[in-house]
Design a protein around this nucleic acid. Structure first.
Lengths: 232, 232
DNA sequence: CTAAGGTGTGAATCACGGTTCAGAACTTGG
DNA sequence: CCAAGTTCTGAACCGTGATTCACACCTTAG
């Protein structure tokens, strides 16, 4: 039996596989999943169309793997930014929104691909998983905020969904491939606007300033910072 | 010149067109745009594939028209529910959420198709338009709430996006074709949960109950109703 | 070096559904 | 009923891009 796959062979194969994954990822980051045709991936990965199929069972699965690797990295970054359960939930949620939103606005095309681009059922399934992970992280923060007395009691799952919905919807306008990249100032404003919106929905009113007896209580207003106009 | 299109002819043509539109709409309501192939539309509309093309320039435009008619009806219903600018903004926003959410949960498949299903660029363009309309309605309510002193001052565009994002994200779990229909109680709970979340994000604290002089104000807590657990 | 496998290649194939079009069926005014 | 048009029909066509596969090229161990 004159030929058997050897360590080198295996390494070469693994390298090729990785190169194809890298190639696909680059294409996605540049122009979305749509642009990652098998031919384009092969070309960019210095391989032939056929050999793509000796490393991956199908394009759909290849893309699912690209998605998974990109999304799991993002998730890890966010997780990390929010990991310190000793922090006030208010700060953790703020960090989540800042990190998530900031990174999305930095890598707009990739963010759009990961969050919104229609791809295929395999990717859709992955997307669902990651979405659930984000919801869980958020829900955990909300719960902890409630336990610490920072947040109002309310359905945590619903609140988490609503927070994530507010984030995505506020971002999507700026992530669309056809819309021009926002200025840094606008970026900061959106992210901060989202943060304040969500915190208002979660936290009880700041303790009212001491009221001189006799002054009507009806005019009390919570001293929430007023945001500047930011709209898309 | 023995033959010329006549009134009857024209009416027949219009009827056929309408029948095809109805057929397509029924298919979409049952199984989404994906199911509305030209062949299926023709079959259900008692026509041949070819004659679909004598009434519509392309499938994409036909679907865009289906979308438009369904979406504009929904929009009109919501607009109507919210039209009375004399009402408190709080009530109007509540009505918007109740009507929008309630109808979506009633016609889940259609709602999913209109809100989330990937279709084609023509439909995507329509979708964008309608999304903008909803944002405008919401923004208008938010602005009016601010003018009336019911809502906190904040960026109205961002707030409107966030509100709509919270609504969609909280709904999408229940609209997914593969998920089972929610019980009526759960429906009511989601919608009400969304409503409370959004109002909390928009309104200042309820005026504190008259404080007996000397009682510390620091323990004040806004009497927001606590929601029951509802999660997906 | 050579036989026995592996691995790479890219043109051909396939699947899919929208679109076309040659002819059949029909409608109208005379 | 006829001629001149219109409308209907559905099988054939097409564009697209994923997938296959016969073949050439390598690599290994004896």
């Amino acid at each position: 039996m004159p030929y058997r796959p050897t360590a080198l062979t295996r390494k070469n194969a693994a390298d090729k596989r990785a190169a194809l994954l890298r190639a696909a990822r680059a294409l996605v980051a540049a122009d979305g999943f749509r642009a990652a045709t098998v031919a384009a991936i092969a070309a960019r990965g210095q391989a032939s169309v056929g050999s793509v199929y000796s490393h991956f069972d199908s394009r759909d699965l290849l893309l699912a793997e690209v998605f998974r690797s990109a999304a799991s990295h993002e998730l890890a970054v966010v997780r990390d930014a929010v990991a310190d359960t000793g922090q006030p939930a208010t700060d953790r949620l703020g960090d989540l929104i800042r990190v998530f939103g900031g990174r999305a606005l930095q890598g707009r095309r990739m963010a759009w691909a990961l969050l919104f681009e229609p791809v295929n059922p395999a990717v859709e399934a992955e997307r669902l998983t990651y979405r659930r992970s984000y919801t869980e992280i958020t829900e955990q923060i909300v719960r902890s905020g409630q336990e610490r007395g920072e947040f109002l009691p309310q359905d945590t799952g619903l609140a988490a969904s609503a927070v994530l919905g507010a984030i995505s919807e506020a971002l999507v306008g700026w992530l669309r491939p056809e819309s021009p990249p926002p200025l840094p100032q606008a970026q900061a404003d959106v992210v901060d606007g989202i943060r304040l919106f969500c915190l208002r929905a979660l936290t009880p009113p700041v303790p009212a300033p001491p009221v001189p007896p006799g002054t009507g209580a009806g005019s009390a207003r919570r001293p929430h910072r007023q945001d500047r106009r930011v709209g898309p």
